[in-house]
Amino acid sequence: MQGIACGMLPSSTSWHTASLRPSKGVAPSSVPRTLTDTDLAAIVRLRRMSQGLVDRLTSSYSKVMLTNSALLALGITGAIASQASSMLHNGSTIAYSPSNAKAYLR
């Protein structure tokens, strides 16, 4: 079987479409419900949700890049072993996960 499971992408897909495939059922189930409201508050809620997503992505990206850059620098200089770097990387991933599980709207 070709595809992501084998580590190869079919020639007709790009990395972006392949990475979105597992979550493609989320948007069709949530967006119509949000946009079918007759009041304008639904548009405001959708905007707030999308801004929350952008803010969360920006924050997560910054934290991950800072952590991984520091671990890379420590590894290159020999300050920590590659096993320690790997453990700290995995630990930071787990530590950042709860903040990404919060609701977008409060």
Rank of each mutant, 00 (worst) to 15 (best):
M1W: 07
Q2G: 08
I4S: 03
A5T: 13
L9G: 01
S12E: 15
S14W: 01
S14K: 05
S14P: 01
W15N: 08
W15S: 12
H16V: 12
T17E: 15
A18W: 00
L20T: 07
P22C: 08
S23V: 06
K24I: 10
V26E: 06
P28I: 02
P28V: 02
V31I: 11
P32K: 04
P32S: 03
T36N: 08
T36F: 05
L40E: 08
A42T: 01
V44H: 04
V44M: 06
L46Q: 05
R48M: 14
R48V: 10
G52I: 04
V54T: 11
D55Q: 15
S59I: 02
K63H: 14
K63G: 09
M65T: 15
M65Q: 15
L66E: 10
L66Q: 12
T67P: 02
N68L: 13
N68F: 14
N68T: 15
S69V: 11
A70N: 10
A73K: 13
G75E: 01
G75F: 03
G75L: 01
T77I: 02
G78W: 02
I80L: 05
A81G: 12
Q83F: 03
Q83Y: 05
S86I: 04
M87E: 06
L88M: 13
L88S: 01
S92H: 14
T93V: 11
T93G: 07
T93Q: 07
P98T: 02
R106H: 07
